[in-house]
Write a protein that binds this DNA or RNA. Structure first.
Lengths: 209, 209
DNA sequence: TCACGCGTTGGCCCAAGGTCCAATTCCGTC
DNA sequence: GACGGAATTGGACCTTGGGCCAACGCGTGA
């Protein structure tokens, strides 16, 4: 994942700041997109793009913090670097608590800004990869029938076919069939790999010593 | 884990602040210990105690940020709530990046401080539990012979006994014996449970589809 | 009504794992 | 040199899992 394959969204109502930041980023090899307001960004940006956001705090309409929340609520994991001239400590702390990569104050040195952006892009790449894998797993999970999913949960708890059969009020042979289908649909050959998938997808399963 | 079972360490060179914070915390039901300097805290506090730290930023000798780093370097996971009268945004951001639970500025309301402390204690409880489990697993791992540990890594990658035997240049029967000993020493009965343990302990193992 | 997916069950055979027994070799320590 | 732990191997027996073929009932939608 090179920097050029990523996009830095610059959200700031001040045209001079926006242009200046974009010029700096472009000269450093990043693709950039400028937005004059949080609403314009929320409505207009391509959610499929991997990248990060450089976000002003105080803007007409939706503030930077509100946009951060809105973005998170929408399920986005786009890393955010705040860049503001009128911040205070409580605001910066709140932004960081909500997952911001950095909170920079104007004037900011080119190195500081570029460093923060590189860090954000790095995080974006990792998160994107994780999301891609998780969606892939969930896509496979969606192909399971209700019964197969039920068997799956028992399998990753380490239950034997016989035990699962007893739990579900059926016989071992039936579980064998479901089990084989689960393994096939989830595209794994070992139980360990299956457990790893389920755990990656973030499905809560009670463990059994 | 009740609040009373935890201790809040108050590190501040200003006696009036220290006393005031301690009085507030005690009235809220927390046990507290006061320290007049970061060095005194690093040298004197009981590392076995579960709790959190309320930390001043500017003190004679080691600063709050330096103490945060020193504590992290020493392997501590004690949550830190900064409380300062002379902070700035870069400092607060740096503190949050390094894992601080909160960064409060004086004057602070009782509710804000107590809320931050409760949050920190909650985090401490979770972290302590995780550390306890991890140490427990590592204690069991330490009882494995080098060969058994080698077999373990292959097992959690989903390899079959026969495959492991080929990899290690021996026969399946031998692996069976090692495998049985591994399961016994790690106190698990299923392969899934073993994989879970290894993963909890944070051991990096390449997965095999 | 018929095809289809789903859940179910049976039999059969083979592969793999789990558990007993016992034994050998090597190596460091007492 | 004896002793004990670690690693190794063998055999026997049982349990468990995996694959393959076949079949039945049931509800849904074509």
């Amino acid at each position: 994942m090179t920097d050029a394959a990523c996009t830095v969204f610059v959200v700031d109502d001040d045209p001079s700041v926006r242009k200046g930041v974009q010029r700096l980023l472009r000269s450093a090899g990043f693709s950039t997109e400028g937005y004059t307001s949080a609403q314009a960004f929320l409505d207009g940006h391509d959610r499929a793009v991997i990248g990060c956001v450089i976000l002003d705090l105080t803007m007409p309409g939706i503030s930077g913090l509100q946009m951060q929340e809105a973005l998170a609520d929408s399920g986005s994991v786009l890393p955010i670097v705040f860049l503001t001239g009128h911040g205070d400590i409580p605001t910066s702390v709140r932004a960081m608590k909500h997952g911001a990569v950095d909170f920079l104050t104007k004037p900011v040195s080119d190195d500081m800004l570029l460093g923060a952006v590189r860090h954000a892009i790095e995080r974006a790449t990792v998160l994107e990869q994780e999301m891609r894998e998780k969606h892939d797993i969930e896509r496979r999970l969606a192909t399971l029938t209700p019964r197969e999913r039920e068997v799956l949960t028992h399998l990753v708890r380490g239950r034997l076919n016989k035990q699962i059969a007893a739990d579900l009020g059926t016989v071992e042979k039936t579980i064998k069939v479901h089990r084989a289908r689960v393994m096939q649909k989830m595209q794994v050959r070992t139980l360990v790999a299956l457990a790893r998938l389920v755990q990656q997808a973030g499905i809560a399963v009670d463990s059994a010593g």
